[in-house]
């Protein structure tokens, strides 16, 4: 596969390691009520869609950036890739 790195352009997926569901960026608030249940969800439960999926890839043999890649798990079509830090910073605003 080729990952469209937002800074570096198309790069071979062999340069990356895969983590999984981008929901892992949404770490629950540890001080909120019911934090343990929220963490349980966060740690153990993942969507595994047959279709479009937002997932985390790490450019290990590259610029060490974490990317949020939107990929169709059925066709492997890649619909987009963003720097995770931008996604997170954008969500915080």
């Amino acid at each position: 596969m080729l990952i469209p790195h937002p800074l570096l352009g198309l790069r071979d997926a062999q340069e990356f390691t895969y983590l999984g569901d981008a929901a892992l960026m949404n770490r629950p608030d540890p001080d909120a009520p019911g934090a343990e249940a929220a963490f349980c969800d966060y740690v153990f439960l993942r969507d595994n869609p047959a279709g479009v999926h937002r997932e985390l890839w790490y450019h290990e043999q590259g610029d060490r950036s974490w990317l949020v890649v939107t990929r169709n798990t059925l066709t492997h079509e890649i619909l987009g890739a963003e720097l995770a830090s931008d996604v997170k910073a954008g969500a915080a605003q």
């Binding site: 390691t17 290990e60 060490r64 995770a84």
Partner: peptide, 18 residues
């Protein structure tokens, strides 16, 4: 060593980029 570095980058970029 490699995995911890990766995880530190995860924390830096994906959890607390601020």
């Amino acid at each position: 060593a490699g995995l911890v570095f990766q995880r530190m980058e995860f924390a830096r970029q994906c959890l607390w980029p601020e």
